[in-house]
Nucleic acid binder design. Structure first.
Length: 257
DNA sequence: TCATCCCTGTGG
DNA sequence: CCACAGGGATGA
């Protein structure tokens, strides 16, 4: 469910509650996560919490707990356990971190060292982007969502980024002109940073919540995602929805070419 | 580059 | 009831 801005919001919200605190108990409440039962060495101090792509990393000194919310996962801090389906609870003296995940698609693992095959982070300098796009025949929307190419972008922000850049989702990655690539370099960080500044996006289903359960303010206004048939905020023509790679794909046929 | 699967909940 | 859901691994 969450993409980079939502995961970043989660991580920032958890840090003040958890970093430097002693993890006293772990409750595994989903058979799919049984392998975690023997993975913790307690008590352990949480040294830091970091985000990498859409992964949340709890540094426990000799181990790293890696959570990935996938579609429906949430990670919340609370004094008491939430009523929703909790798959994993991390107990601290004054509260807990709860991995809530109704669809149970999210993943959790404990490793000695976090390693991954994720691409670069999409914030900051994207000077590497032009050469990375070269030689990739996939639709640019796929490319943006391919975590090995660039980390953290999902279906919503891929749509929003491509609208901002004025590029149609089906365009092949290696077909973009210099100026289109330059617009992408600008659109990627600016869309994601704007969303982070708003604390992420909460859709109508309200699945996503912040680290303390708050719904994200709707201050990040979606330009295209979920707006099929509604007027484009820029040109007024209706937003279209198609299916690309099995995912709903929203774009403005007039503004995105 | 597809389809399919993993899961469950919700909205039309 | 069916369609769809913010992710991603897998196999053809």
């Amino acid at each position: 469910m969450p993409e980079l801005p939502e995961v970043e919001t989660i991580v920032r919200g958890l840090r003040p509650h958890v970093v430097g605190k002693a993890l006293t108990a772990v409750e595994v409440e989903d058979p799919k996560l049984d392998s975690l039962r023997s993975a913790f060495v307690l008590p352990a101090t949480v040294r830091s919490i970091e985000r990498r792509g859409k992964h949340v990393l709890f540094d426990l000194g000799d181990r790293v707990l890696v959570l990935h919310p996938r579609m429906s996962g949430r990670i919340v801090w609370g004094r008491r356990k939430p009523r929703e389906r909790v798959r994993l609870s991390l107990r601290f003296a004054d509260g807990g971190v709860y991995f809530v995940d109704p669809r149970r698609l999210g993943t959790a693992k404990v490793v000695r060292e976090f390693s991954d095959d994720l691409g670069p982070e999409p914030l900051g300098d994207l000077a590497w982007l032009p050469s990375a796009l070269q030689g990739s025949r996939m639709p640019v929307k796929f490319w943006l969502m391919d975590q090995r190419k660039i980390a953290g972008i999902g279906n919503i922000y891929a749509a929003e980024i491509l609208f901002r850049a004025g590029i149609a989702p089906r365009r092949r990655a290696d077909s973009l002109s210099r100026s289109e690539i330059a617009r992408l370099q600008q659109a990627i960080p600016s869309v994601l940073e704007a969303a982070i500044a708003c604390g992420g996006t909460t859709l109508r289903d309200r699945l996503y919540r912040g680290p303390r359960g708050e719904i994200g303010e709707f201050c990040f206004e979606l330009a295209v995602y979920g707006r099929a048939g509604e007027p484009c905020r820029r040109c007024g023509n209706p937003i279209e929805r198609t299916v690309l790679g099995g995912r709903g794909t929203y774009f403005c046929p007039h503004c995105q070419t």
